[in-house]
Amino acid sequence: MSTIVFVHALGSSSRAWRPQIEALGERHKVLAPDLPGHGAEPGPFGLEPAAFAIADLIAHEPESVHLVGISVGATVAMLAALDDPSRIAGLVVSGGAAHAPGVALQRNLMRLMPTGMITALMSGMYAGGRPERKPQAAEDLRKAGKQAFVTGLAELGALDLRPRLADLKTPALVLCGTKDKENLKPAEELAATLPDARLDLIPEAGHIWNLQYPDLFTAKLTEFIA
Rank of each mutant, 00 (worst) to 15 (best):
M78W: 13
I70A: 15
H28D: 05
V92L: 15
V93M: 14
R130N: 15
A32F: 00
K29D: 09
I70W: 03
P131F: 07
I21N: 00
A219I: 04
L221E: 06
L184G: 05
A226Q: 14
E182Y: 07
D83Q: 13
P171C: 10
P171V: 09
P186H: 07
L168E: 13
E223S: 15
V92Y: 10
G157N: 07
E189P: 03
Y126G: 03
Q147A: 11
K179V: 11
I4T: 04
T3H: 09
R111D: 00
G102F: 13
V65H: 05
A80E: 08
P36A: 04
E61F: 04
L121T: 10
F52L: 06
G206F: 05
Y213L: 13
V68Q: 06
R142F: 03
I118H: 02
G177A: 11
L221K: 02
R15P: 02
H99Q: 09
E63I: 05
L112C: 03
L31M: 10
T193S: 15
L168N: 06
T218E: 01
Q136A: 15
M122L: 15
E182K: 12
P85A: 13
D215Y: 02
F6V: 12
D160A: 09
E22L: 11
L112R: 12
D56P: 05
A191Y: 07
H60Q: 14
G145C: 09
A59G: 11
P19D: 06
D84G: 07
I202N: 00
T178F: 04
V150L: 00
Y213T: 13
H60C: 08
T119F: 01
A59K: 06
A154G: 15
G128V: 04
V30D: 04
L161T: 08
P195I: 09
V76N: 06
I202W: 01
G25H: 03
L112D: 02
T170M: 15
G177I: 01
R27G: 05
A100N: 10
H38Q: 01
A138T: 08
L31C: 13
A148Y: 03
L156H: 01
E26L: 12
K185G: 09
G177Y: 03
A226S: 15
